[in-house]
């Protein structure tokens, strides 16, 4: 009897489902986007390596007054340490909101050391979005982005324990970004920010964050066919982003991203489009 009742109710429920048009096409496109994201993540790692090898020593040299910057991993970490902003109350608040425990670095084993702990991270740049702000955090070892609401609380997806951070300059991959000395995109993409009551995605955030040299005075980022967003440049770092409800617009924004940098005369000195 119970079996029949439950089975009947479940069947009635399932019967309300409407057939989906072109589910095969949708799934294939979604899988293709996932593959592109994976490739970009791997490629970004190589860009970071390039940045570490070229941009960082260049930026650090004046500070050390002609002294040679050490080569190898310790040189990279030491160099980045010098361009990280100083600690501040605002920085600590952002790190506290976004780091529920020390972050996890994919591929890194062993106990956390200097630069791996939450307390080692600094606020590199912040960019206003609807009902909050995006933040770009970094330490001498790695970086991550995070969405904070107007009350200073991280989005639910950012409140999980041991958030993932990415190491500077590690990982395999090719470089589709054609890196330029003036702008080096490091962290680009999007994340789910909220889920609805049924568990479906409610909204996404899209962002582009990276390194910038003084010759770039303005950076714009365009997600999909949306109007360009002017990035916030904060010292050696830039960050731009936006939040969008799930739907057609958000899907279109996932398809492409364009970053342009301008010098003081308004001349475009860097331009990249993803996917290329």
């Amino acid at each position: 009897m119970t079996n029949d009742l439950v089975e009947d109710a479940l069947s009635q429920l399932a019967n309300r489902a409407r057939p989906v048009d072109d589910m095969a096409g949708r799934a294939l496109r979604s899988a293709a986007r996932c593959r592109v994201r994976r490739r970009v993540t791997a490629s970004t790692a190589l860009v970071v390596a390039t940045a570490a090898a070229i941009a960082v020593p260049v930026m650090v040299l004046p500070a050390v007054d002609g002294e040679k910057v050490q080569a190898g991993p310790s040189g990279v970490q030491g160099g980045l340490d010098k361009v990280l902003p100083p600690d501040s109350a605002v920085s600590r608040a952002a790190v506290r909101a976004c780091m529920n425990g020390d972050p996890t670095f994919p591929g890194l084993t062993g106990p956390p050391t200097e630069g791996h702990r939450a307390r080692d991270f600094r606020l590199l740049a912040t960019h206003p979005v609807k009902d909050g702000r995006l933040v770009f955090l970094g330490s001498s070892k790695g970086y991550r982005t995070c969405l904070i609401d107007k009350d200073g609380k991280a989005s639910p997806a950012n409140r999980q324990r041991r958030q993932i951070a990415h190491l500077w300059g590690t990982g395999p991959g090719r470089d589709p970004w054609a890196p330029d000395a003036s702008v080096v995109p490091l962290d680009t993409g999007g994340n789910v920010t909220a889920y609805g009551p049924g568990g479906h995605v409610k909204s996404y955030e899209f962002h582009a964050a990276g390194r910038v040299t003084p010759e770039a005075t303005k950076i714009t980022v365009r997600f999909g066919k949306e109007p360009p967003i002017t990035a916030t440049i904060s010292g050696s770092w830039f960050l731009a982003g936006t939040v969008s409800p799930a739907g057609t617009k958000a899907r279109a924004m996932q398809q492409s991203m364009e970053i342009k940098a301008y010098d003081a005369n308004g001349t475009v000195i860097f331009e990249t489009t993803h996917p290329t």
Partner: peptide
């Protein structure tokens, strides 16, 4: 999609769930 609907109780959520699983 019938199974997805029985799990979610909503057409959009069911499509989203099925697409995610198929991906």
């Amino acid at each position: 999609i019938r199974t997805a609907y029985a799990l979610t109780g909503d057409q959009h959520a069911a499509e989203d769930l099925l697409q995610s699983a198929l991906t």
